[in-house]
């Protein structure tokens, strides 16, 4: 029998200054919030005062977030298994926190549906064609592939799908818009609090995704960079399609929502992340080792 080796009992120890460990430490401080502790009593009162289209708009968005959070919770595990099998203990530790946070996001949206919207029916009518492409096909396929293909290209394609497209273009943009609706109209303080927590959690998840892609590009070069770009190119149209289909569902949007505002935000964030990943090709991972997250 070969003796198993352990990093934590070796001279290497835990790399507390590595990006995933820095995120792990942040998660322990900032990710500890309880969906059950959020007070939704004012939210329920506000809900009853909304008109039919306003309620439908919030229900639509919540149903997209709810199913999206369920998807990312169910689909993350193969990536954790890859990190475990590659012996990347720090990344696996952070991904454990990541998964725990996603599970809380599932819980908080179900609380909203049950206790604020008092909605117990089937909401799949809100899951439009582009949404089905991203969440019903692209995400589970890319993540599920990691069970039998752990190549760097497969990892990059999974991360682009999960982190850059689903969390970056869709969740982050969606939560930004959702929070803006509630804050601008001074409604639903409970949900405003929940979305503030969600946004904070998601920003760490995105930081991990950008780190993972940067590390893969640095370690494996052009094949990973090319695959990253091609995957984004393929998924940007359906991802933006999800946003467009929300807007095209109504003749006139409630809450003064504007499509351009959503798209501009998505583009700005996407651009900043891509620029950071691209920088690794010329400058290496030095910036990651020195600075945030």
């Amino acid at each position: 029998m070969t003796a198993r080796s352990y990093v934590t009992t070796s001279v290497r120890g835990l790399r507390h200054d590595s990006p995933p460990m820095r995120l792990w430490h942040k998660s322990k401080q900032l990710g500890v919030w309880d969906p059950r502790a959020i007070d939704f009593s004012r939210d329920r009162e506000d809900w009853t005062r909304l008109d039919a289209q306003e309620r439908d708009t919030l229900l639509r968005l919540s149903s997209l977030f709810q199913a999206g959070e369920e998807s990312v919770t169910l689909d993350l595990l193969p990536l954790m298994m890859v990190m475990a099998e590659e012996g990347r203990l720090e990344e696996e530790m952070y991904l454990a926190a990541f998964l725990w946070e996603e599970a809380k996001h599932v819980e908080v949206f179900r609380r909203f549906l049950d206790e604020v919207a008092d909605e117990h029916g089937d909401l799949t009518r809100y899951h439009t064609p582009s949404y089905q492409v991203v969440f019903g096909d692209a995400l589970p396929t890319a993540m599920g592939r990691l069970r039998h293909d752990r190549s760097p290209v497969a990892q990059a394609e999974a991360s682009v799908t999960y982190n850059m497209i689903v969390e970056g273009v869709l969740a982050e943009t969606g939560y930004e818009g959702y929070h803006a609706i509630l804050a601008r109209n001074g409604i639903m303080p409970g949900m405003q609090t929940a979305v503030t927590y969600l946004k904070r959690d998601e920003s760490r998840h995105l930081a991990y995704g950008v780190y993972l892609l940067s590390r893969l590009v640095e370690e494996h070069g052009d094949p990973v960079w090319d695959a990253t770009q091609q995957r984004m190119e393929a998924l940007l149209p359906p991802a933006i399609g999800v946003i467009q289909e929300i807007f095209s569902s109504y003749e006139r949007m409630s809450f003064g929502l504007k499509l351009e505002e959503f798209l501009d935000f998505a583009m700005r964030q996407f651009q900043a992340r891509m620029t950071r990943i691209a920088r690794v090709r010329t400058e290496g991972l030095g910036e990651w080792e020195a600075g945030d997250p």
Partner: peptide, 11 residues
Amino acid sequence: VTAPIMAIMMG
């Protein structure tokens, strides 16, 4: 080298 949609999204 860069797809049109990527060039637009990258600014």
